[in-house]
Design a protein around this nucleic acid. Structure first.
Length: 640
RNA sequence: GCUAGCGUAGCUCAAUUGGCGGAGCAGCGGUUUUGUAAACCGCAGGUUGUGGGUUCGAGUCCCACCGCUAGCUCCA
């Protein structure tokens, strides 16, 4: 007999080799019905796993993340089986689960079409109908390699060769076999709802030099309702697409004639941007920052000294020749800040210096990665460079974290994930600087995060070439993640440019530099903001805050006077005095997502009021002009 | 950059199989003077992304380039 300890602490005795499925059944029927797999001593295994010794057991059920993951993984296998049935020559790559679904990569000459995807879905449905048992098979490495070679599965051979264990596991379902750690559902018939979403190319093992495979993305859920909810989410995301809203609200455009990745800000977009920039400046001044401006180009030698020419060249625009000198469009602002720092001898009493800069940089991004405002070639970073002593470093990082949090919450972002991006192992050639310098920088970032009690994930190989960073990923209104603030400690640039301060001891010391953004870049941030609010901006950001709608030509004069009065109060207010019915004007204003529509006719003129229709609540009735001003004033102040 | 797909009026979309490029909205001109999500009539709008080719004939087929989209890789 063996002893099994359940999560609630109860212990039960079973015959040796009792399976997890049998244990679940013995506990109760419902658990058995919902059981998909188990965890023995924390390691996930199949329901058919025979328990051999005393252990702890957790039964993984349908209504858990882990359960969903197992289901999706099995659906990925079913998809691969379907693909093999329709295209026997297909070579299998990898087929993992991802957030919201799964994918599987296939090496296949024929390029998959929409029709193929439909056929694959049908075949998957057939496999599910066949209710095929899914079985685990363990083979020795050598046998496994031989078997995959026989089947012509060269990618699998490569994978097995990288596995260090002597025994590797496979899962079979009828004629199909696949290398897999497991666990899986017991029968294909367990799958209820799934959907294939799209096909795209993907390099084998993510390396550009490897052959490109075809990746099919799909998703699966336990109920139709959950799938529908997910599909609705995808539609919602599409409705929020900032490229679409940006055009509809006349915020910005891109031009084939201008060049890819170069944004043109229309008056309304520019207005929004300047509101955000002004707010940004004010908040920085309050926190002891100054602002600076620097040129857009500089001689190539500056970029050689800074290290960009060696480590960042593939992202830089080619040199421009002027008077026999080569100039580079700046991809970063930092060397300019350094030059300004060097204009005089700095004392420790001057530090820290916090220099903010809304600096426009140009980076050569590969054509395939450009995406609306979110990924462009010319963009304005809300940059700042902090020059401080090593002793001040931690405090400065803390200050930046707090500023970043304040900024994000001001724009309605309340959830985020923090990453500590450090050097990758074994690729030192990608990074500048000595090991101890890197370690020192990493320590400073780590300590600051720990002092703030902020949880973070360590990301190997995600650091910039000049130093480690804290990267903050914000979550928007519908739960999607976006690259937000970043804080980078840099001991290298100070060393390369030899920038110093005079300490209390009268000696020269090397200054420490922090690069940081709290929004990221104006382009990306506003793109993100559009999707976050779906274009329904809070009053303080809305490019047009209110529009006055006259009922007939008789009311134009009052409307114009009202507009002038509101303009004097610094509101962004338009007038619609066109020859159209009020319903039409309301519809227009609503579609343009204007927060307040002010309707004026005979009644309002007589009483000196406005009739208010808000985007949030609809018809709000009539207010005196004074009360309306008070109302919107407080709304702006409170950033509601 | 790579794989796949797409490119018709400002926007959204039509155009048998290769056979005279249309509509709605927006715009402009009129009529109408209107009370909380679309009044009516008319006008104008295009070398079908660009350049080649095949064909009696190309929006449609082929090639190259430009741009866009979904991913891969990369990133603020």
């Amino acid at each position: 007999m063996i002893k099994v300890t359940l999560p609630d602490g109860t212990e039960k005795e079973y015959e040796k080799n009792t399976t997890i499925g049998e244990v679940a059944h013995s506990i109760n029927g419902r658990l058995h019905e919902k059981a998909l797999a188990g965890k023995i001593g924390g390691i996930p295994v199949d329901l058919s796993y025979p328990i051999k010794e005393d252990t702890s057991l957790l039964v993984i059920t349908e209504d858990t993340e882990e359960g969903l993951d197992i289901l999706r993984h099995s659906v990925a296998h079913i998809m691969a089986q379907a693909v093999k049935r329709l295209f026997p020559e297909a070579k299998l790559g990898i087929g993992p689960t991802i957030e919201n679904g799964f994918y599987y990569d296939f090496g296949l000459q024929h390029s998959l079409t929409e029709d193929d995807i439909k056929r694959i879905e049908e075949e998957m449905a057939e496999i599910i109908r066949e209710d095929i048992p899914i079985k685990r098979v363990e083979l020795s490495r050598d046998v496994a390699i031989k078997k995959m070679e026989e089947l012509g599965q060269s990618f699998k051979v490569e994978l097995i060769k990288d596995i260090e264990d002597d025994v590797v596991s496979f899962y079979t379902q009828a004629e199909f076999i696949d290398l897999c750690r497991g666990p899986h559902i017991q029968r294909t018939g367990v799958v209820k709802v799934f959907k294939l979403l799209n096909v795209a190319g993907a390099y084998w093992r993510g390396k550009e030099t490897n052959p490109m495979l075809q990746r099919i993305y799909g998703t699966a859920f336990f109920t139709r309702k959950e799938l529908d909810r997910y599909l609705t989410f995808l539609e919602e995301a599409q409705k929020r697409d900032h490229r679409k809203i940006g055009r509809e609200l006349d915020l910005f455009s891109f031009h084939e004639e201008g060049g890819p990745g170069l944004a043109f800000w229309h008056p309304k977009g520019a207005r929004m941007r300047s509101i955000i920039e002004n707010f940004w400046r004010e908040e920085h001044f309050k926190r002891g920052y100054d602002t600076v401006y620097s040129p857009h180009i500089a001689k190539i030698n500056l970029w050689k000294t800074s290290g960009h020419w060696n480590f960042y060249r593939e992202s830089m625009y080619s040199p421009i020749e002027v008077d026999g000198q080569e100039y580079i469009l700046k991809p970063m602002n930092c060397p300019f800040a350094v030059l300004m720092y060097k204009t005089k001898l700095r004392s420790y009493r001057d530090l820290p210096l916090r220099w903010g800069e809304l600096g426009t940089v140009y980076r050569y991004e590969r054509s395939g990665v450009l995406h609306g405002l979110l990924r462009v070639r010319g963009f304005t970073q809300d940059d700042a460079h902090i020059f401080c002593t090593p002793g001040q470093l931690e405090n400065e990082i803390l200050g930046v974290i707090e500023l970043a949090q304040f900024m994000l919450s001001s724009f309605g972002f309340h959830e985020y994930e923090i990453e500590l991006s450090v050097r990758g192992k074994g690729e030192k050639e990608k990074y500048i600087g000595r090991d101890e310098v890197w370690e020192h920088a990493e320590d400073a970032l780590k300590t600051a995060l720990e002092k703030k009690g902020l949880p973070y994930i360590r990301m190997e190989g995600e650091a910039k070439f000049y130093g480690p960073a804290i990267d903050i990923k914000v979550k928007d209104a519908i739960g999607r993640g976006w690259q937000g603030p970043t804080i980078q400690v840099d001991f290298n640039l100070p060393e390369r440019f030899d920038i110093q301060y005079v300490g209390p001891d009268g000696l020269y010391h090397q200054v420490v530099m922090v690069h940081r953004t709290v929004l990221g870049a104006m382009e990306r941030f506003i793109g993100c903001l559009i999707e976050h609010y779906a274009g329904d901006f809070p009053l303080w950001i809305a490019p047009v805050q209110m529009r006055i709608l006259s009922i007939t030509d008789m009311h134009i004069d009052y409307a114009k006077k009202l507009q002038a009065r509101l303009l004097l109060k610094n509101f962004r207010v338009e007038c619609d005095t066109g020859n159209a019915k009020i319903n039409y004007k309301i519809r227009q204003g609503t579609l343009e997502k204007i927060p307040y529509l002010l309707i004026v006719g005979d009644k309002e003129i007589q009483s000196g009021t406005v009739s208010i229709r808000s985007r949030k609540k609809g018809n709000e009735g009539v207010l005196s002009v004074e009360d309306f001003i008070e109302k919107v004033d407080s709304e702006v102040r409170e950033k509601r």
